[in-house]
């Protein structure tokens, strides 16, 4: 199949790749750019493991194809290393045992960050609704929900640092 040149920004850096337009973004990130923090689960938009930020909002990288990514700005889990909200979520996830195998965690963190920033008043029911698009087969979700609620509560209390509870 014909390959095309695609210019995009990944984690703040301009990159140019040559790819088949039908290759999905998750494969492009992992295979071509070696950003293996993005995980691939179902490859049809259901499990949420591949969720990354595209043009500032969380999207599924498995059902976004390379041909539609020219000019896009992509932020993968590697690109959140210095992000304050993700830092708080990492601590909270660790404290609440919100991961076991870690496969769903990159997508969970991208979505959890979006919840924290977009829905600062979210209660448990809303957090569960918003997390419904990210499947976890280890934890039973309780730890993940508590971890997100913990960061929300800390931010509401005006504290940027998560305190042990």
């Amino acid at each position: 199949m014909k390959r095309i040149a695609i210019a995009l920004t990944v984690n703040g850096k301009a990159v140019e790749v040559v790819a088949e337009p039908r290759e999905h973004l998750a494969d492009l990130l992992r295979g071509t750019l070696m950003l293996t923090g993005t995980h691939i689960g179902c490859e049809h938009g259901v499990c949420g493991a591949c969720t990354v930020e595209i043009d500032g909002v969380p999207q599924r990288s498995c059902i976004v194809h390379a041909g539609s990514c020219d000019g896009a700005s992509v932020r993968t889990i590697e690109g959140f290393a210095d992000d304050a909200v993700v830092a708080a979520l990492r601590e909270s996830f660790s404290r609440e045992h919100a991961l076991q195998c870690g496969y769903c965690t990159p997508g969970m963190l991208v979505v959890a960050r979006d919840i924290v920033l977009r829905l600062p008043d979210a209660d448990e029911a809303r957090v569960r609704e918003e997390l419904a698009g990210n499947l976890c087969r280890c934890t039973g979700y309780r730890g993940i929900v508590r971890a997100v609620l913990g960061v929300l509560a800390d931010r509401r209390a005006g504290s940027s640092r998560a305190e042990p509870r």
């Binding site: 337009p21 999905h24 049809h44 938009g45 599924r60 498995c62 059902i63 194809h65 041909g67």
Partner: peptide, 23 residues
């Protein structure tokens, strides 16, 4: 194709096999 959030899964599952997609 627009957001391809319905078409994308069909492409990945090979249920839809268009030659070309116009974005």
């Amino acid at each position: 194709g627009a957001g391809t959030q319905s078409l994308g899964p069909l492409l990945n599952l090979r249920l839809a096999q268009p030659e070309t997609i116009a974005d």
